[in-house]
Design a protein around this nucleic acid. Structure first.
Lengths: 152, 152
DNA sequence: TATTGTTATACTCTATAACTATA
DNA sequence: TATAGTTATAGAGTATAACAATA
Protein backbone atom coordinates (compact mmCIF):
# COMPACT_ATOMS: atom_id res chain seq x y z
CA UNK A 1 0.00 0.00 0.00
CA UNK A 2 1.28 3.44 -0.92
CA UNK A 3 4.12 1.75 -2.71
CA UNK A 4 2.81 2.68 -6.12
CA UNK A 5 4.95 4.55 -8.55
CA UNK A 6 5.20 8.18 -7.53
CA UNK A 7 4.26 10.15 -10.60
CA UNK A 8 2.88 13.64 -10.92
CA UNK A 9 4.37 16.44 -8.88
CA UNK A 10 7.69 15.73 -7.23
CA UNK A 11 7.61 13.36 -4.31
CA UNK A 12 3.86 13.29 -3.90
CA UNK A 13 1.98 10.04 -4.45
CA UNK A 14 -0.96 10.98 -6.64
CA UNK A 15 -2.96 8.01 -5.35
CA UNK A 16 -3.80 6.89 -8.85
CA UNK A 17 -5.46 10.19 -9.67
CA UNK A 18 -3.07 10.72 -12.54
CA UNK A 19 -4.26 7.48 -14.12
CA UNK A 20 -7.96 8.31 -14.09
CA UNK A 21 -9.71 9.45 -17.21
CA UNK A 22 -11.81 12.10 -15.44
CA UNK A 23 -8.79 13.78 -13.87
CA UNK A 24 -6.78 13.68 -17.09
CA UNK A 25 -9.77 14.93 -19.04
CA UNK A 26 -9.96 17.95 -16.79
CA UNK A 27 -6.25 18.71 -17.16
CA UNK A 28 -6.48 18.40 -20.94
CA UNK A 29 -9.54 20.61 -21.16
CA UNK A 30 -7.98 23.29 -18.96
CA UNK A 31 -4.80 23.27 -21.05
CA UNK A 32 -6.66 23.60 -24.34
CA UNK A 33 -9.06 26.21 -23.00
CA UNK A 34 -6.27 28.34 -21.56
CA UNK A 35 -4.40 28.23 -24.84
CA UNK A 36 -7.53 29.30 -26.70
CA UNK A 37 -8.12 32.10 -24.18
CA UNK A 38 -4.58 33.32 -24.80
CA UNK A 39 -5.03 33.13 -28.57
CA UNK A 40 -8.20 35.22 -28.54
CA UNK A 41 -7.19 37.70 -25.83
CA UNK A 42 -5.37 40.11 -28.18
CA UNK A 43 -8.71 40.59 -29.94
CA UNK A 44 -10.54 41.24 -26.71
CA UNK A 45 -12.63 38.09 -27.17
CA UNK A 46 -13.27 35.21 -24.85
CA UNK A 47 -14.06 31.74 -26.17
CA UNK A 48 -17.74 32.35 -25.48
CA UNK A 49 -17.64 35.60 -27.50
CA UNK A 50 -15.92 33.83 -30.36
CA UNK A 51 -18.38 30.95 -30.41
CA UNK A 52 -21.30 33.38 -30.32
CA UNK A 53 -19.87 35.27 -33.30
CA UNK A 54 -19.39 31.98 -35.15
CA UNK A 55 -22.95 30.81 -34.58
CA UNK A 56 -24.50 34.18 -35.39
CA UNK A 57 -22.47 34.39 -38.60
CA UNK A 58 -23.64 30.94 -39.63
CA UNK A 59 -27.26 31.71 -38.75
CA UNK A 60 -28.03 35.36 -39.45
CA UNK A 61 -31.34 36.40 -37.95
CA UNK A 62 -31.02 33.87 -35.14
CA UNK A 63 -32.77 34.53 -31.84
CA UNK A 64 -30.77 34.86 -28.62
CA UNK A 65 -32.48 31.84 -27.14
CA UNK A 66 -31.24 29.60 -29.94
CA UNK A 67 -27.70 30.89 -29.65
CA UNK A 68 -27.82 29.92 -26.02
CA UNK A 69 -29.21 26.48 -26.81
CA UNK A 70 -26.46 25.87 -29.36
CA UNK A 71 -23.63 26.94 -27.07
CA UNK A 72 -24.97 25.70 -23.77
CA UNK A 73 -25.27 29.22 -22.37
CA UNK A 74 -28.41 30.18 -20.47
CA UNK A 75 -30.38 32.97 -22.08
CA UNK A 76 -30.05 34.98 -18.89
CA UNK A 77 -26.26 34.87 -19.09
CA UNK A 78 -26.23 35.57 -22.80
CA UNK A 79 -27.75 39.03 -22.39
CA UNK A 80 -24.62 40.68 -21.04
CA UNK A 81 -22.37 38.88 -23.47
CA UNK A 82 -24.40 40.16 -26.42
CA UNK A 83 -24.76 43.61 -24.85
CA UNK A 84 -20.99 43.89 -25.03
CA UNK A 85 -20.75 42.63 -28.60
CA UNK A 86 -23.48 45.05 -29.65
CA UNK A 87 -21.85 47.95 -27.83
CA UNK A 88 -18.56 47.16 -29.57
CA UNK A 89 -20.37 47.38 -32.89
CA UNK A 90 -19.82 43.72 -33.79
CA UNK A 91 -23.40 42.47 -33.56
CA UNK A 92 -26.81 44.00 -34.28
CA UNK A 93 -30.13 43.26 -32.63
CA UNK A 94 -32.86 43.85 -35.19
CA UNK A 95 -36.62 43.70 -34.86
CA UNK A 96 -38.22 40.50 -36.10
CA UNK A 97 -41.28 41.35 -38.25
CA UNK A 98 -43.43 38.48 -37.04
CA UNK A 99 -42.45 38.42 -33.36
CA UNK A 100 -41.84 41.52 -31.32
CA UNK A 101 -40.55 39.53 -28.35
CA UNK A 102 -37.33 38.40 -29.95
CA UNK A 103 -34.29 39.93 -31.58
CA UNK A 104 -32.78 38.92 -34.89
CA UNK A 105 -29.04 38.76 -34.40
CA UNK A 106 -26.52 39.45 -37.13
CA UNK A 107 -22.91 40.49 -37.53
CA UNK A 108 -21.99 43.98 -38.63
CA UNK A 109 -19.20 44.48 -41.16
CA UNK A 110 -16.96 45.09 -38.19
CA UNK A 111 -18.21 41.88 -36.67
CA UNK A 112 -17.36 40.01 -39.85
CA UNK A 113 -13.89 41.51 -39.84
CA UNK A 114 -13.41 40.65 -36.18
CA UNK A 115 -14.59 37.11 -36.81
CA UNK A 116 -12.11 36.76 -39.65
CA UNK A 117 -9.30 37.77 -37.30
CA UNK A 118 -10.63 35.48 -34.60
CA UNK A 119 -10.72 32.58 -37.04
CA UNK A 120 -7.04 33.16 -37.77
CA UNK A 121 -6.22 33.23 -34.06
CA UNK A 122 -8.25 30.09 -33.57
CA UNK A 123 -6.53 28.41 -36.52
CA UNK A 124 -3.19 29.07 -34.89
CA UNK A 125 -4.43 27.49 -31.71
CA UNK A 126 -5.78 24.47 -33.59
CA UNK A 127 -2.52 24.11 -35.50
CA UNK A 128 -0.62 23.93 -32.23
CA UNK A 129 -2.93 21.20 -31.01
CA UNK A 130 -2.76 19.32 -34.30
CA UNK A 131 1.02 19.37 -34.38
CA UNK A 132 1.04 18.09 -30.82
CA UNK A 133 -1.22 15.18 -31.67
CA UNK A 134 0.35 14.70 -35.08
CA UNK A 135 -0.15 11.27 -36.52
CA UNK A 136 -0.22 9.73 -33.07
CA UNK A 137 -3.96 10.23 -32.90
CA UNK A 138 -6.72 9.89 -35.43
CA UNK A 139 -8.67 13.10 -34.96
CA UNK A 140 -11.97 11.62 -36.15
CA UNK A 141 -11.64 8.82 -33.61
CA UNK A 142 -10.79 11.30 -30.87
CA UNK A 143 -13.85 13.37 -31.71
CA UNK A 144 -16.05 10.28 -31.62
CA UNK A 145 -14.68 9.26 -28.24
CA UNK A 146 -15.24 12.74 -26.83
CA UNK A 147 -18.79 12.82 -28.20
CA UNK A 148 -19.42 9.44 -26.63
CA UNK A 149 -18.13 10.62 -23.27
CA UNK A 150 -20.32 13.72 -23.52
CA UNK A 151 -23.37 11.48 -23.47
CA UNK A 152 -22.56 10.20 -19.98
CA UNK B 1 -20.72 28.71 -47.42
CA UNK B 2 -23.14 28.06 -44.63
CA UNK B 3 -24.34 25.02 -46.53
CA UNK B 4 -22.67 22.58 -44.17
CA UNK B 5 -24.57 19.83 -42.48
CA UNK B 6 -26.68 21.22 -39.66
CA UNK B 7 -25.81 19.15 -36.64
CA UNK B 8 -26.02 19.99 -32.97
CA UNK B 9 -29.11 21.66 -31.58
CA UNK B 10 -32.16 21.63 -33.83
CA UNK B 11 -32.01 23.90 -36.81
CA UNK B 12 -28.94 25.82 -35.76
CA UNK B 13 -25.78 25.60 -37.85
CA UNK B 14 -23.00 25.03 -35.35
CA UNK B 15 -20.46 26.54 -37.74
CA UNK B 16 -18.16 23.57 -37.37
CA UNK B 17 -17.90 24.07 -33.62
CA UNK B 18 -19.23 20.57 -33.03
CA UNK B 19 -16.36 19.14 -35.00
CA UNK B 20 -13.59 20.86 -33.08
CA UNK B 21 -11.58 18.98 -30.50
CA UNK B 22 -11.50 21.86 -28.03
CA UNK B 23 -15.25 22.29 -28.01
CA UNK B 24 -15.90 18.54 -27.71
CA UNK B 25 -13.26 18.25 -25.03
CA UNK B 26 -15.09 20.86 -22.98
CA UNK B 27 -18.44 19.08 -23.39
CA UNK B 28 -16.91 15.75 -22.40
CA UNK B 29 -15.16 17.20 -19.38
CA UNK B 30 -18.32 18.94 -18.17
CA UNK B 31 -20.32 15.73 -18.55
CA UNK B 32 -17.82 13.62 -16.62
CA UNK B 33 -17.32 16.26 -13.94
CA UNK B 34 -21.04 16.71 -13.39
CA UNK B 35 -21.50 12.98 -13.04
CA UNK B 36 -18.69 12.81 -10.50
CA UNK B 37 -20.18 15.76 -8.61
CA UNK B 38 -23.50 13.90 -8.44
CA UNK B 39 -21.80 10.71 -7.28
CA UNK B 40 -19.99 12.43 -4.41
CA UNK B 41 -22.78 14.82 -3.39
CA UNK B 42 -24.53 12.33 -1.05
CA UNK B 43 -21.33 12.26 0.99
CA UNK B 44 -21.12 16.04 1.13
CA UNK B 45 -17.89 15.99 -0.86
CA UNK B 46 -16.91 17.88 -3.97
CA UNK B 47 -14.35 16.47 -6.41
CA UNK B 48 -11.71 18.75 -4.90
CA UNK B 49 -12.49 17.45 -1.39
CA UNK B 50 -12.28 13.87 -2.62
CA UNK B 51 -8.98 14.39 -4.40
CA UNK B 52 -7.54 16.12 -1.32
CA UNK B 53 -8.55 13.17 0.87
CA UNK B 54 -6.98 10.78 -1.65
CA UNK B 55 -3.68 12.60 -1.75
CA UNK B 56 -3.49 13.10 2.02
CA UNK B 57 -4.25 9.41 2.58
CA UNK B 58 -1.47 8.41 0.20
CA UNK B 59 0.98 10.88 1.75
CA UNK B 60 0.34 11.17 5.48
CA UNK B 61 2.20 14.11 6.97
CA UNK B 62 2.06 16.05 3.71
CA UNK B 63 2.19 19.85 3.81
CA UNK B 64 -0.69 21.93 2.47
CA UNK B 65 1.53 23.45 -0.16
CA UNK B 66 2.32 20.06 -1.66
CA UNK B 67 -1.32 19.03 -1.72
CA UNK B 68 -2.00 22.16 -3.69
CA UNK B 69 0.87 21.47 -6.07
CA UNK B 70 -0.36 17.94 -6.69
CA UNK B 71 -3.96 18.95 -7.36
CA UNK B 72 -3.40 22.23 -9.09
CA UNK B 73 -5.05 24.19 -6.29
CA UNK B 74 -3.41 27.37 -5.04
CA UNK B 75 -2.37 27.25 -1.42
CA UNK B 76 -4.52 30.28 -0.73
CA UNK B 77 -7.63 28.48 -1.93
CA UNK B 78 -6.75 25.28 -0.15
CA UNK B 79 -7.03 26.86 3.29
CA UNK B 80 -10.82 27.00 3.35
CA UNK B 81 -11.17 23.58 1.78
CA UNK B 82 -9.01 22.04 4.50
CA UNK B 83 -10.67 24.14 7.21
CA UNK B 84 -13.94 22.41 6.31
CA UNK B 85 -12.42 18.93 6.24
CA UNK B 86 -10.77 19.54 9.61
CA UNK B 87 -13.97 20.94 11.10
CA UNK B 88 -15.84 17.86 9.89
CA UNK B 89 -13.32 15.72 11.71
CA UNK B 90 -11.96 14.08 8.56
CA UNK B 91 -8.48 15.62 8.50
CA UNK B 92 -5.99 16.68 11.17
CA UNK B 93 -3.40 19.43 11.04
CA UNK B 94 -0.48 18.43 13.24
CA UNK B 95 2.67 20.29 14.17
CA UNK B 96 5.74 19.33 12.18
CA UNK B 97 8.72 18.83 14.54
CA UNK B 98 11.31 20.32 12.21
CA UNK B 99 9.30 23.19 10.70
CA UNK B 100 6.88 25.29 12.67
CA UNK B 101 5.59 27.07 9.57
CA UNK B 102 3.82 24.07 8.08
CA UNK B 103 1.15 21.59 9.04
CA UNK B 104 1.39 17.83 8.71
CA UNK B 105 -1.90 16.67 7.23
CA UNK B 106 -3.42 13.27 7.92
CA UNK B 107 -6.78 11.54 7.83
CA UNK B 108 -8.64 10.74 11.02
CA UNK B 109 -10.38 7.37 11.35
CA UNK B 110 -13.52 9.15 10.26
CA UNK B 111 -11.62 10.52 7.30
CA UNK B 112 -10.49 7.02 6.36
CA UNK B 113 -14.09 5.79 6.59
CA UNK B 114 -15.33 8.71 4.52
CA UNK B 115 -12.64 8.09 1.93
CA UNK B 116 -13.66 4.43 1.71
CA UNK B 117 -17.24 5.51 0.98
CA UNK B 118 -16.04 8.10 -1.50
CA UNK B 119 -13.96 5.49 -3.29
CA UNK B 120 -17.09 3.37 -3.73
CA UNK B 121 -19.03 6.32 -5.09
CA UNK B 122 -16.15 7.12 -7.41
CA UNK B 123 -15.94 3.49 -8.52
CA UNK B 124 -19.60 3.64 -9.51
CA UNK B 125 -18.92 6.74 -11.52
CA UNK B 126 -15.91 5.14 -13.19
CA UNK B 127 -17.90 2.00 -13.96
CA UNK B 128 -20.50 4.09 -15.75
CA UNK B 129 -17.80 5.70 -17.84
CA UNK B 130 -16.10 2.38 -18.55
CA UNK B 131 -19.32 0.73 -19.69
CA UNK B 132 -19.96 3.71 -21.95
CA UNK B 133 -16.55 3.43 -23.57
CA UNK B 134 -16.57 -0.36 -23.41
CA UNK B 135 -14.25 -1.99 -25.88
CA UNK B 136 -14.66 0.88 -28.31
CA UNK B 137 -11.74 2.69 -26.72
CA UNK B 138 -8.46 1.53 -25.32
CA UNK B 139 -8.28 3.28 -21.98
CA UNK B 140 -4.50 3.38 -21.87
CA UNK B 141 -4.43 5.04 -25.27
CA UNK B 142 -7.06 7.53 -24.20
CA UNK B 143 -5.05 8.40 -21.11
CA UNK B 144 -1.92 8.90 -23.19
CA UNK B 145 -3.77 11.18 -25.59
CA UNK B 146 -5.19 13.25 -22.76
CA UNK B 147 -1.78 13.53 -21.12
CA UNK B 148 -0.33 14.63 -24.42
CA UNK B 149 -3.00 17.29 -24.84
CA UNK B 150 -2.38 18.50 -21.29
CA UNK B 151 1.14 19.45 -22.30
CA UNK B 152 -0.14 22.02 -24.80
C1' DT C 1 15.46 36.79 1.86
C1' DA C 2 12.44 32.97 1.03
C1' DT C 3 8.74 29.94 2.48
C1' DT C 4 4.17 28.45 4.77
C1' DG C 5 -0.04 29.41 5.98
C1' DT C 6 -3.46 32.87 6.27
C1' DT C 7 -6.86 36.72 5.32
C1' DA C 8 -9.18 39.73 2.43
C1' DT C 9 -10.67 40.67 -1.88
C1' DA C 10 -11.98 40.56 -6.72
C1' DC C 11 -13.16 38.55 -10.93
C1' DT C 12 -15.29 35.12 -13.91
C1' DC C 13 -18.68 31.66 -14.77
C1' DT C 14 -22.77 29.77 -13.77
C1' DA C 15 -27.49 29.26 -11.58
C1' DT C 16 -32.19 30.94 -9.87
C1' DA C 17 -36.11 33.95 -9.27
C1' DA C 18 -38.89 37.36 -10.81
C1' DC C 19 -40.28 40.90 -13.96
C1' DT C 20 -41.99 42.92 -18.94
C1' DA C 21 -43.79 42.57 -23.21
C1' DT C 22 -45.35 40.02 -26.26
C1' DA C 23 -47.53 35.54 -28.38
C1' DT D 1 -50.61 30.24 -20.51
C1' DA D 2 -46.29 30.13 -22.64
C1' DT D 3 -42.23 32.39 -24.64
C1' DA D 4 -38.18 35.94 -25.34
C1' DG D 5 -35.64 38.98 -23.31
C1' DT D 6 -34.21 41.27 -19.23
C1' DT D 7 -32.68 42.40 -14.39
C1' DA D 8 -30.93 41.36 -10.02
C1' DT D 9 -28.67 38.32 -7.28
C1' DA D 10 -26.21 34.43 -5.39
C1' DG D 11 -23.01 30.77 -5.50
C1' DA D 12 -19.07 28.38 -7.05
C1' DG D 13 -14.21 28.45 -8.61
C1' DT D 14 -10.22 30.84 -9.23
C1' DA D 15 -6.78 34.84 -8.97
C1' DT D 16 -3.84 38.54 -6.68
C1' DA D 17 -1.94 41.28 -2.84
C1' DA D 18 -0.46 41.65 1.59
C1' DC D 19 0.54 40.01 6.18
C1' DA D 20 2.58 37.07 10.30
C1' DA D 21 5.43 33.52 11.71
C1' DT D 22 9.23 30.93 10.72
C1' DA D 23 13.22 29.18 7.99
Amino acid sequence: MGSKRKTGVGEVDMAGLDRQVGFLLRLAQVAVFNDLIGSLKPLGLRPSDYSALLVIAANPGLKQQLVGDALGIQRTNLVGLLDDLVQRGLVTRSVVPGDRRSWALALTDGGQAMLAEARKAHAGHEAKLQSLLGDKVDQATLRDVLKLISSL
